[in-house]
């Protein structure tokens, strides 16, 4: 269970560039929740992800994961139980290292004690990596000795997804992770995401600009504006919602229209 209590963050406080990025975020995610997040640019979606992942420490408030206060735990330590995917498929993998080596590094999270730092990748692990890659169905299991830089954006994002979930994380943060991919690849990566999250019952937060996705995927939809969560819907109320309802809710919650071309476009196009 993830809890954010009144998390606030102001960048460049006291200067002309002052930016109140988070203005009191309150959120409780139950185990197994899969929440989608919508909101216009600058609403604080990525900033909230950065706060959860530990890229910075909040000015105020606390972040609690599974009953443990992680507000000031460094980012690299949190990554043991927090998986994260970015919009840019080039982040999250090391391009000059092979697929196998990338997976081996991701697998370090499994258990520090079992993996002495001077041990090498074992045959058993290679076999395990191969099986996992085969499940992605992108032909990567036969290219394990190839550098990741030779893969396509979709393959790299699928690999990053595998790396983030190979050791089941307590929470998975997806920051528009299919937005930079072409439509058919995006659909495939999204399907994989859905499958992996459902199979392992991973608690998941996903930022999207696609209103249909926001209602269709997962069991809960959040809307952010001006550094806060302004709308949170799940269960029956969510099932009955249409994209129009969602846009209307946004106007109510923030007092302004959802004037973002990307959102309107993706709404018209559907998934």
């Amino acid at each position: 269970m993830l809890q954010l209590k009144n998390v606030r963050k102001t960048f460049n406080a006291g200067t002309v560039n002052e930016k109140k990025a988070l203005t009191g975020v309150n959120l409780t995610l139950e185990d197994g929740d899969f929440a989608t997040i919508v909101g216009s640019n600058g609403a604080g979606k990525s900033t909230m992800f950065n706060a959860i992942a530990g890229s910075f420490y909040p000015d105020r408030g606390s972040i609690i994961l599974d009953g443990k206060n992680i507000t000031f735990v460094p980012e690299y330590k949190r990554s043991v139980y927090i998986g994260r995917l970015f919009q840019d498929p080039l982040m999250g993998t090391a391009p000059h290292m092979t697929i196998e080596e990338n997976l081996a590094i991701a697998y370090l999270r499994a258990s520090k004690k079992q993996h002495a730092i001077f041990s090498r990748i074992s045959k058993k692990e290679k076999e395990f990596f191969r099986e996992q890659l085969a499940l992605l169905d992108m032909g990567m299991e036969d290219r394990m000795k190839n550098p990741v830089g030779l893969l396509s954006g979709g393959q790299r994002q699928a690999l990053t997804l595998l790396m983030a979930t190979m050791v089941t994380p307590k929470i998975l943060l997806l920051d528009e992770h299919t937005a930079a991919l072409d439509p058919s690849t995006a659909a495939k990566v999204l399907d994989l995401t859905r499958k992996i999250v459902a199979e392992r019952n991973i608690t998941c937060l996903m930022v999207t600009h696609n209103m249909n996705q926001a209602l269709e995927l997962g069991n809960r939809t959040l809307m952010m504006s001006d550094g806060r969560i302004v709308f949170d819907v799940k269960g029956k109320e969510r099932d009955g919602m249409t994209v129009e309802d969602l846009l209307e809710k946004f106007a109510q919650g923030t007092g302004k229209n959802f004037n973002n071309d990307r959102i309107l476009l993706s709404t018209e196009q559907g998934e």
Binding site: Y76, V80, F86, M91, G92, T93, I105, I117, A164
Partner: peptide, 17 residues
């Protein structure tokens, strides 16, 4: 491998504990 990854993709290293 971790040292190699540090020079190649620092973001990935942080994400791998």
């Amino acid at each position: 491998l971790s040292i190699r990854a540090t020079g190649d993709s620092p973001a990935m290293v942080r994400a791998s504990s």
